[in-house]
Simulated assay, not measured.
Amino acid sequence: MTMDREQDIRDRAHAIWESEGRPEGQHEAHWRRASAEIDEGAPEPGQTETMDESGAPVGIKG
């Protein structure tokens, strides 16, 4: 993993954590979600991403 990609994932995971009210114990789910968003491209503004029970992304609505 390149340092730029890792930092991008770290920044996105942090933003996800903050947007969800800073819950404890969700760091792995946030990291997976951020990694997927970085790899696949984040949703466009105005679109929302649907999640499964574990918090993993399953699709984009918009």
Results as ranks from 00 to 15, higher is better:
Met1Arg: 14
Thr2Leu: 03
Thr2Pro: 08
Thr2Asp: 00
Asp4Gln: 02
Asp4Met: 00
Asp4Glu: 09
Arg5His: 01
Arg5Asp: 02
Arg5Asn: 11
Glu6Gly: 07
Glu6Tyr: 06
Glu6Arg: 06
Gln7Lys: 14
Asp8His: 01
Ile9Cys: 02
Ile9Asn: 06
Ile9Leu: 03
Arg10Glu: 06
Arg10Ala: 11
Asp11Ser: 00
Asp11Val: 04
Asp11Asn: 07
Arg12Ile: 05
Arg12Leu: 02
Ala13Ser: 14
His14Cys: 04
His14Val: 10
Ala15Val: 04
Ala15Glu: 12
Ile16Tyr: 05
Ile16Glu: 03
Ile16Pro: 07
Ile16Leu: 00
Trp17Gly: 13
Trp17His: 07
Trp17Ala: 08
Glu18Ala: 14
Glu18Trp: 13
Glu18Phe: 12
Glu18Met: 12
Ser19His: 06
Ser19Lys: 03
Ser19Trp: 07
Ser19Asn: 03
Glu20Lys: 12
Gly21Thr: 06
Gly21Asn: 06
Gly21Glu: 02
Gly21Lys: 08
Arg22Cys: 14
Arg22Val: 09
Pro23Ile: 14
Pro23Gly: 12
Pro23Met: 14
Glu24His: 09
Glu24Met: 12
Glu24Arg: 10
Glu24Ala: 09
Glu24Val: 12
Glu24Gly: 13
Gly25Asn: 06
Gln26Phe: 11
Gln26Leu: 09
His27Cys: 12
His27Met: 14
His27Asp: 12
His27Glu: 15
His27Leu: 14
Glu28Gln: 04
Ala29Pro: 00
Ala29Thr: 01
Ala29Ser: 03
His30Met: 10
His30Glu: 11
His30Gln: 12
His30Ala: 10
Trp31Thr: 10
Trp31Asp: 01
Arg32Val: 11
Arg32Lys: 13
Arg32Met: 10
Arg32Glu: 13
Arg32Gly: 05
Arg33Ser: 00
Arg33Cys: 07
Ala34Ser: 08
Ala34Lys: 12
Ser35Thr: 04
Ser35Val: 00
Ala36Ser: 08
Ala36Thr: 11
Ala36Cys: 10
Ala36Leu: 10
Glu37Ile: 02
Glu37Phe: 01
Glu37Val: 04
Ile38Asn: 04
Ile38Thr: 04
Ile38Cys: 04
Asp39Pro: 06
Glu40Trp: 01
Glu40Gln: 13
Pro43His: 10
Pro45Trp: 14
Gly46Arg: 04
Gly46Asp: 01
Gln47Leu: 07
Thr48Tyr: 07
Glu49Arg: 06
Thr50Ile: 07
Met51Leu: 15
Asp52Val: 11
Asp52Gln: 08
Asp52Gly: 07
Glu53Ala: 13
Glu53Met: 11
Ser54Gln: 15
Ser54Thr: 15
Ser54His: 15
Ser54Trp: 12
Ser54Phe: 15
Gly55Trp: 02
Gly55Leu: 09
Gly55Thr: 01
Ala56Met: 14
Pro57Thr: 15
Val58Ser: 03
Val58His: 05
Gly59Lys: 11
Gly59His: 05
Gly59Pro: 09
Ile60Trp: 12
Lys61Thr: 14
Lys61Arg: 14
Lys61Phe: 07
Gly62Trp: 14
Gly62Asn: 15
